[in-house]
C-alpha cells in the first residue's frame, strides 16, 4: 500500500464526506438566500424545454444506478436469483441510456449558456467551475460504463472491487487495496466524483437537496403568522451594524 493509495482511497473519501456534510450544513445556515436553482428560463425557453428535462432525468437515473451498483452487494442480487450476466446487461443498458441522456442534456445546457447572450451574462465563475467538474465526472463515468461493459477491452466487474471499497468507507473499515487493484478508468472516475462532491455544497448544485417532495402532502394555501423573523431575512444583531 503506497502513501498515494492511502491518500486517494482512504483520506480523500473521508475528506469528501466531511466537506460535503459540513459544507452543506454551513452553507444552509450561512446562505439560505443564495440557495436556489438560479433558473435561467426567463432568458431563454426553447432550448431549456428539451435540455433541462433530459439532463435531469438522466442524472437522477444515473444517481439511482450508483446507489444500486455501489450499495447493494453482489451476493444479495445473486441470492435474489439475478445472475451476474443478467445484472450486468441490465445495468449497462440502463446506465448507458441514462449516461447518454445526461451527456446530451448537459451539452445542450452548456451550448445554451454559451450561445444565449443573456444566459452567458448571468453565468458566474462558480457556474463555470461547477460545469468543469460535473462534465468531467459524467464523461469519465460514461467511459467506465463502456470499459466495464466490454465494448472496449474485456469487460470488468466493478462490483468485486469498487463497490466493496465504497461500502468499506461507510463501514469505517476502509479497504484501499480493493480500489488500488481496479482499473485506472474507474480510479479516475472515482476521484472526479469525489472532487465533484467536495465542491457541491459551494455551487448551485445544492438545489438538488431541496427537491420539493413535501409539496405532495401539504395543503394548497399556506397561512403563516407574523411570528418573529419569518418575513425578514436577517436576524437583528446585538449592537450596531458595521457600516463602511
Amino acid at each position: 500500500m503506497t502513501a498515494s493509495e492511502i491518500l486517494l482511497w482512504v483520506a480523500l473519501p473521508y475528506i469528501t464526506i466531511a466537506v460535503f456534510v459540513t459544507g452543506t450544513v454551513w452553507r444552509y445556515r450561512y446562505d439560505k438566500f443564495g440557495w436556489t436553482t438560479r433558473s435561467s428560463q426567463l432568458y431563454e425557453r426553447k432550448l431549456i424545454r428539451i435540455a433541462s428535462p433530459i439532463f435531469h432525468i438522466g442524472i437522477l437515473a444515473v444517481l439511482m444506478g450508483h446507489v444500486v451498483g455501489l450499495l447493494i452487494p453482489e451476493s444479495w442480487t445473486n441470492a435474489a436469483g439475478l445472475s451476474e450476466d443478467a445484472y450486468h446487461l441490465m445495468a449497462v443498458g440502463i446506465g448507458a441510456v441514462a449516461g447518454v441522456c445526461t451527456l446530451v442534456g448537459v451539452s445542450l445546457l452548456v451550448y445554451r449558456r454559451r450561445t444565449t447572450g443573456a444566459v452567458m451574462a448571468a453565468t458566474t465563475k462558480n457556474d463555470k467551475t461547477m460545469y468543469v467538474f460535473l462534465i468531467a465526472a459524467i464523461c469519465l463515468g460514461l467511459l467506465t460504463t463502456i470499459i466495464g461493459s466490454g465494448v472496449l477491452g474485456d469487460g470488468y466487474n466493478y462490483r468485486e472491487t469498487v463497490s466493496p471499497w465504497f461500502r468499506s468507507i461507510f463501514l469505517l473499515n476502509p479497504q484501499p487495496e480493493l480500489m488500488a487493484e481496479s482499473l485506472p478508468s474507474f480510479q479516475v472516475h472515482a476521484v472526479a466524483g469525489m472532487l465533484l462532491f467536495i465542491i457541491w455544497p459551494f455551487t448551485r448544485l445544492v438545489h438538488a437537496f431541496s427537491a420539493p417532495f413535501g409539496y405532495v402532502f401539504r395543503p394548497y394555501v399556506v397561512y403563516r403568522d407574523k411570528g418573529p423573523h419569518d418575513a425578514g431575512n436577517h436576524a437583528p444583531k446585538r449592537g450596531w451594524e458595521k457600516v463602511g
Binding site: F33, G34, N126
Partner: peptide, 19 residues
Amino acid sequence: HDASGPFGYASGRPVPVAV
C-alpha cells in the same frame, strides 16, 4: 461579475438596506 456574494449574486448574509 460575482460582485455580490461568494456563490453568485446576492448569496451570503444579507446586508441591511441602509448599509
